[in-house]
Computed example of a mutant assay.
Amino acid sequence: MNQTASELLRGYAVGLTHVGRVREENQDAYFVDESKGVFAVMDGAGGMKDGALASGLVKNALNTIHVPRSAEDLLEQFEGRVILAKEQIEHASQQANGAAMGTTIAALLTFGGNFACLWAGDSRVYRLRNGRLEQLTTDHTEAQELVDQNVLTIEEARNYARRHVITRAIGSGIDLELELVSGNLRSGDRFLLCSDGLTGHLDDATIGTFLMTAAPNSSARDLLNGALECGGSDNVTVVIVDIDGVGSGEGAILR
């Protein structure tokens, strides 16, 4: 993330989360701070105990980030807070007699005219630019590894029995390894951060249509409702970030 002084763009965000139609507890969490350029979605890792605690600890850690002095400062602060959250998750696991705890994360950092995406697990970041939707993250899952090895096709991976098995997370007993991509922002860019409760039900073409056809509040609600109408088998969370947009949206928790 290298700042270009002449480019001072800002992200305006709206976030929504829903427990879904099957689960009893929402283990997703999201974080939005427009003034600091930090946006994130966390999904308490499937199959792990206390996923809500893990995702909440990450959210609380991100809330302690200070207004950054530079892009490098923002990246350092973010990585430091994630390390802190992992330590807290490890401690919570020890207090629970070694119970496994973990969460995915998909984060967008913006500063000046630049952005960075950092992630671990299968929560995703998309970018809509000039009518073209691009997935910026690559799932850290067993299914994706098999796709990369040409063992499964993308369509086969969507129905793979172990498609929800993640290979990276912020969790107890798991080495912390965040992947990072970065690039330049453009006015008019729209980013989507989401948990797999969305992408498990809606394909990229449908997601792109919802993102292109409405204001951020309406797009977020349409995406969430689309996942619910397709079964809502998991918690679902979406955060939409418009770059250099007008106004900002308030996040909400739907029950």
Rank of each mutant, 00 (worst) to 15 (best):
A5I: 13
L185D: 07
K59H: 12
R190D: 09
T104M: 02
R69T: 14
F191Y: 14
D33A: 11
I89C: 03
A92F: 09
H201M: 11
C194L: 08
D50E: 10
G80T: 11
G80P: 02
L74P: 00
M1D: 12
A116S: 13
G231S: 10
S55W: 03
F111I: 06
E79Q: 15
A106H: 02
N130L: 07
Q144M: 15
A106K: 00
T17M: 08
Y12W: 13
A161E: 15
A13H: 04
E145Y: 09
A92E: 14
N184L: 10
G171R: 02
G249E: 02
S93C: 03
F39C: 00
R127P: 00
T4F: 09
I166K: 03
N97W: 05
G131V: 05
S6K: 12
T209P: 02
G98A: 11
G37T: 07
L223C: 07
E34N: 14
G80H: 01
L176M: 11
L193Y: 05
V41L: 04
N184F: 09
R168W: 10
N225V: 04
Q27L: 02
E87H: 11
R168D: 10
E145K: 14
N217M: 09
R186C: 10
F111L: 02
L53R: 12
I83P: 02
S248Y: 08
C230F: 13
L118H: 04
G231M: 09
L53A: 13
L108Q: 00
L254S: 04
N2R: 13
K36L: 13
S248R: 14
V67I: 14
G232A: 08
H66S: 15
W119N: 00
L254D: 01
T206S: 06
N60F: 06
E179D: 15
W119E: 04
D222E: 12
V239E: 03
L176T: 06
F78V: 07
T104N: 00
D203E: 14
V32P: 06
A40S: 08
C230Q: 15
